[in-house]
């Protein structure tokens, strides 16, 4: 039993995840690692209600994610983990929840971000956090839906890595 996918997606748990990736990977549990959602009962309940009935949903803080995920995996579950942004991914990695591949599923446009792919826009903080993960040996693989072509994020970035 394992972590099937660790995904950065600023929409967190939504159709591409519950219907798209969920149908292909068949996780036992979607885990949303996000301090804001974990601290808001209404948002938590909304996300918990939004997945197909056969899949559990857990909303956890970044700090507790590593331990909780290890417990679920030891109990025999397959997990799909959702993170809102690269900084949270780096914080998770440094807390001891290590991984080799990180799925970049969606970081949408806002002021200060540069578009790399239709569904990936990065600012300096994003690039720095992702570079730090790369230095740990993590491959950041862009794919919004399960059958889209896997693109290496840093190959997409090219020389813009230092310009953003």
């Amino acid at each position: 039993m394992s972590l099937l996918l660790i995904r950065i997606d600023d929409r967190l748990l939504h159709g591409q995840v519950t219907q798209g990736w969920g149908s292909v990977l068949n996780p036992d549990r979607f885990v949303v690692a996000n301090d804001t959602v974990a601290g808001n009962e209404w948002e938590r309940e909304m996300y918990e209600s939004s997945a197909p009935e056969r899949v559990a949903v857990s909303i956890v803080t970044i700090a507790e994610t590593g331990e909780r995920v290890r417990e679920w995996i030891e109990a025999g579950e397959d997990i799909l983990l959702l993170i809102e942004n690269p900084s949270d991914a780096l914080e998770l990695y440094r807390s001891g929840l290590t991984f080799d591949v990180l799925n970049m599923g969606g970081l949408h446009h806002r002021d200060g971000r540069t578009r790399i792919l239709p569904y990936v826009c990065l600012d300096r903080n994003d690039v720095e956090a992702l570079s730090a993960l790369r230095d740990h040996g993590v491959t950041v693989e862009c794919a919004d839906v399960p059958n889209s072509e896997r693109k290496d994020l840093f190959a997409c970035l090219g020389s813009r890595e230092n310009e953003i």
Binding site: R11, T18, S49, P52
Partner: peptide
């Protein structure tokens, strides 16, 4: 259109 999707949220 899709319960649980981002538009729904």
């Amino acid at each position: 259109a899709l319960f649980g999707g981002s538009c729904w949220q």
